[in-house]
Design a protein around this nucleic acid. Structure first.
Lengths: 357, 357
DNA sequence: TTGAAAGCGCTAACAG
DNA sequence: CTGTTAGCGCTTTCAA
């Protein structure tokens, strides 16, 4: 700030207008009495610089308020220090905490996050990856709607990590619903329910398949009947159709692919004069904003979704730093938990109840 | 794809590993039989290239699947084709549609959006702007928590556009609550309410001041009493304190700074056995996700927030292209509208009602 | 209208 | 451990 104000040096850049203000590595080098490469190393490879030199350089840089130019860093190194995060629906509250977790972790590591909303479209998703290819160092694909093949293709040219999706050879962070689905089924069984309906979500959703599978197995163990309905759009707007089908199915308890759909079902029941949980019990996946204040408050299977977002970014950063991601891809699995609220209760006419009856 | 596969040319780059694959402008130039600068111009300054040359170059580029390297574009030109969007709380549903509107508009114009969550912290907000300074072409600051002075300072070194904030000399897109606040007050007056309480939000929030001001004036016109309480944290967690204060104030109708807070108030009333709207009427600003299915559904003042996001990006792009933003800063104002639901009703004991009584 | 050439600010061999 | 030297891929004068 004191002597080498932006543009004050008639140095090597000559008369050419240097993009608005801003101190370069050369200004720092000159002021510190070292070569530009030493300044560069002091930041990028500190271990290769004498500690005293490094400290001096950093002090000078600080004093000059030096900020590296991201484009200039990226050009020779190919590293942008930017990560891409793709989500299928940015307006779904489920993704809020995922985004926040990812963003915190990224910025803590000095990375910038580019968020992109693919609006449930597989082609938009693929196109976005291709467009951002050179602009980011890697991608996190949350709840990808792409086929496994397409994901593998993209993974050949891009470093990527999946969230809530498993594809052989691609690292991932997933919330495992298996245990909590079993708990949910046990909860319903203990309330006397014998017949369950699952309201399916988008066909390309891996979670959708995982949830149904876990539900089917748990039901079988408990000797309950489980039917699969749908698929329905994973929004509140999917509620009416899903609710009507569920009611028609004769099930006494309904488990929806996600809480958005479950809330839609709740509203449809209210409109039709069907009481929850007296006439029918409703539960859903994803403990989103609103699940606790809809009416009645919704029993859900909750994902530790902020941790999942964080973990995915960690995985990605690991691949980026560790020998350019050639390592065996690994995955992290985080357990979900059951949140019982008021939308589930005794099966109508069912006699066997829990002791708290 | 046919003859100049990535790295197939032993050209000027020599043996140095070219960052993974990818066709450069030189590959296109060679294949098209023109100079690299002509390829560059064919995209960036098409009007300065013979139409036939341009078309040919583009065809070749297409065929080779050429993608410009963003860092390389940014370095000499200083333009990154990236925009920064800062929001105070990414988990507040209010911002979802704003983000979606901004993102759509940005990507339609070929820009990438970098989203940053400032978590209600003015210092984080300022720091983020400074860090992203060279990484983006301009910023949209949504509901900024910075002081007017700090905003002006930042506006000196950065191109920026505000959302829901007015600062002289800085362009902005704002949702105007004035008319709809008046409508809300009239609605309450017609239900017999004489005494209103406003539950204030964050002091640095401009909307907060605007809302109170509009409310105060409208109340005065209608000869109602209005008291201002708070400030309260603009989350559901602020509900209990706000509700207790409101109830204690003797007001029969309560207007909360935002819907998050209003929903928190609703819950507190339920816990305390106070009936809404029989004992007290509740309304809030921002027609967020959940406002229509909380219980009772909330009367709100709704912002056309997706349009506001879109408009802000338009303004920013305008400044970016039109002579580098030297133009007189202009602002757009979008009107809000009132959504009456079940959380507002007759004043307790009030006799004068609306004709629909 | 086009080509040649000079960088943008930084990183990364390679010497020393 | 540090300096010198080439570029990274693109844009932008400047001439032709």
């Amino acid at each position: 700030m004191t002597e080498v104000g932006a543009g004050s040096s008639p140095g090597p850049a000559g008369r050419r207008r240097r993009p608005p203000s801003d101190v370069t590595i050369h200004d720092v080098a000159r002021a510190a009495g070292v070569a530009a490469s030493t300044v560069s190393r002091s930041f990028g490879r500190p271990e290769r610089v004498n500690i005293r030199t490094r400290e001096h350089v950093r002090a000078v840089a600080e004093q000059l308020n030096y900020r590296p130019n991201p484009a200039a860093r990226a050009l020779p190194s190919g590293r942008t220090y930017t990560l891409g995060l793709l989500v299928p629906d940015i307006t779904n509250p489920f993704f809020f905490d995922l985004i926040r977790g990812a963003e915190r972790q990224a910025s803590a590591a000095g990375y910038t996050l580019v968020l992109s909303d693919t609006e449930e479209s597989p082609s938009r998703e693929a196109r976005t990856v291709e467009q951002l290819h050179r602009a980011v160092d890697g991608f996190v694909l949350a709840s990808s709607r792409l086929s496994a093949d397409r994901i593998r293709q993209l993974a050949a040219d891009n470093i990527l990590v999946l969230i809530n999706r498993r594809v052989a050879g691609v690292p991932c962070a997933v919330a495992d619903n298996t245990d909590s689905t079993r708990q949910l089924v046990e909860h319903l069984a203990s309330l006397g329910h014998r017949r369950l309906a699952y309201l399916g979500g988008p066909r390309p959703s891996w979670s959708n398949a995982q949830r149904w599978e876990a539900l089917r197995e748990a039901a079988q163990e408990k000797e309950l009947t489980a039917v699969r309905l749908g698929p329905y759009p994973p929004f509140m707007a999917g509620g009416p159709a899903a609710a009507d089908a569920a009611i028609g199915s004769g099930a006494t308890a309904v488990i929806a692919f996600n809480a958005l759909l479950a809330i839609g079902v709740l509203r449809r029941c209210a409109d039709r004069g069907i009481r929850v949980p007296e006439d029918i019990s409703i539960a859903g996946y994803d403990d989103i904003f609103g699940a606790d204040f809809c009416s009645p408050p919704l029993t859900t299977v909750a994902s530790p979704i902020q941790d999942v977002g964080r973990a995915a970014v960690d995985l990605l950063l690991g691949r980026l730093t560790t020998h350019q991601g050639r390592r065996e891809p690994h995955g992290v699995t985080l357990p979900c938990y059951l949140r019982i609220r008021d939308s589930t209760g005794r099966a109508p006419g069912g006699e066997r109840g829990d002791p708290a009856g």
